[in-house]
Every structure is written in C-alpha cells, then in structure tokens.
Design a protein around this nucleic acid. Sequence first.
DNA 1: CAGAATCCCGGAAGATACTG
DNA 2: CAGTATCTTCCGGGATTCTG
Lengths: 132, 132
Amino acid sequence: MATQTAAQRREGARAAYDAYLAACPARELLDTISDKWVSLVLNALSDGPLRYSDLGRIIAGVSQKMLTQTLRGMERDGLVSRTVTPSVPVRVDYALTELGRDLQPLMRAIKAWAESHIEQVHSAREAYDTRA
Amino acid sequence: MATQTAAQRREGARAAYDAYLAACPARELLDTISDKWVSLVLNALSDGPLRYSDLGRIIAGVSQKMLTQTLRGMERDGLVSRTVTPSVPVRVDYALTELGRDLQPLMRAIKAWAESHIEQVHSAREAYDTRA
DNA sequence: CAGAATCCCGGAAGATACTG
DNA sequence: CAGTATCTTCCGGGATTCTG
C-alpha cells in the first residue's frame, strides 16, 4: 500500500503553501486592503482625522464591532494612529499615519485601473452569461 | 414610539451601502484580485498557457473545486481564456487574455509596494504587540 | 483528463446587551 | 462617547464521490 494517500499528500502541500503564502508580502497587503471596512476607513480618513463616532456615521453600514476591530487592526499595522483625549466624556481621534498616507497613491492606482477597465469586465461577463 | 428602531435604520443604511459598494469598480477589482487563488492563477499563467492539471500541480494546495471555480470566474470576467481540444482524453488549456495581461503591471505595483513597506508594517505590529 | 454534485464544518460577521 | 462581551447565524471552502 501507499505510504501516503492522495489526500495526505495534498494536505501536506496545502500546509506548506499556506505557510509560504502567509509570508508573502503581496498577500499580506492584499488581505489588508481588500477588506471592505479597511478601504472605507482609509478613504474616510483621507481628508483628515475623525472621531470614532464620526467614522461610524460616515461609514453608514458598519457595526460597532467591525469598526472597532478594523481600527484596531489598522492601528496594529501602523496605518492609523489612535489618540485618546481623557475629557468627560472621552474623545478618541483616528488619523492616517505616514504609512497610511503612503498607501494612498497605490489605492488610487487600483481605483484608476478599475475604472478604466471595468467596462471590459462587464461586457465580458455579459458575453459569458448570454452565450450558451 | 419611534417609527423605526436603531437596528432598522442601520439595516437600511447597510443595504443601501452594500448596493453602492457593489457598483464600485475599485471594490469589484479588489474583491477579484484579493482572492488567493485568483492571484496565484494569474501568476502561474504569466509565463504562458497551462493545462488544467498543470495548474493544479503548480498551485500545490488547491482543491479541484476551488481551481475550477476560480477559473470559471476568471473566464467570466475576461481574464483568462479556456480552450478545449477534443482529443481523447480531453485537453483543456488556460491562458491569460489581453485584459489579464493588462492587469499584470498593477499586480507588480502592488507587489512592489508590499515589498518595500512590509518592514514598516512588521515593526509596527511588533511595537503594538509588545507594548502593554 | 477535466470536471460536476453532494455533504459538511469552522470561522467570520452581525445583533444585542452591558460598561468605564 | 467609545467601546467590550456574548450569542448566533451564515456560507466559503475542503473532502469525497461520480461521470463524459
């Protein structure tokens, strides 16, 4: 009998690949910026700092949980800064860091590509869906 | 009593926002290229056409289901072409379309940004994790 | 060889309620 | 005001099995 089943071999390959991918910078970046809330926060803060509640209002559909979770993650990655003003009631401001601002040209490039090619994608989809 | 609860209002806002986002080209693009398997297929095909089984071997950890599903989606979006050669057994080749090749410079830009800034992200994380 | 169909599980995200 | 804590639901993705 085989020392390994096909499933076992694939499992091992998958584990190795996952490890490889986790260490891939491009993957890390894509995982970050493709997050719906991350990109929205990035955009909301592009005009200047905002308070927690302002962000919640501007990004209309977000739940408190996701907003907090998103901001924590972005703070951890060094994309935003969090400033607490210990007044009563408390006031917390969020702002883009230099790294966060560095990211903006790339986001604009992505947006530009999307806008200039979206028509091709849409017509390709239509062709695909109507054929057959 | 209020005509709407807070939850109902948020629900409406979320629905409207989702609709808005679904129509956002940048979001569509990000949702596409941030897919793990999409980016791997894009990369695998950059050197030329490959057969289904070759893709499965090169992208070591992928399951048949995900490979097929990914390729179908990319074909629908006009990123790859699918060519069936009705021999026995069947042979199917996948290749990048012009649109798919157009995407490569952007992918390289993302990769470049990631590689030149990943250190900052990692040290930011370390600082965040080690501080209290 | 290149898929299609089916079952199933873990984890992500929302709703709700509570707090310093 | 700015969160935290908990519960629950939903579905993306893997394993498995079958076929033209």
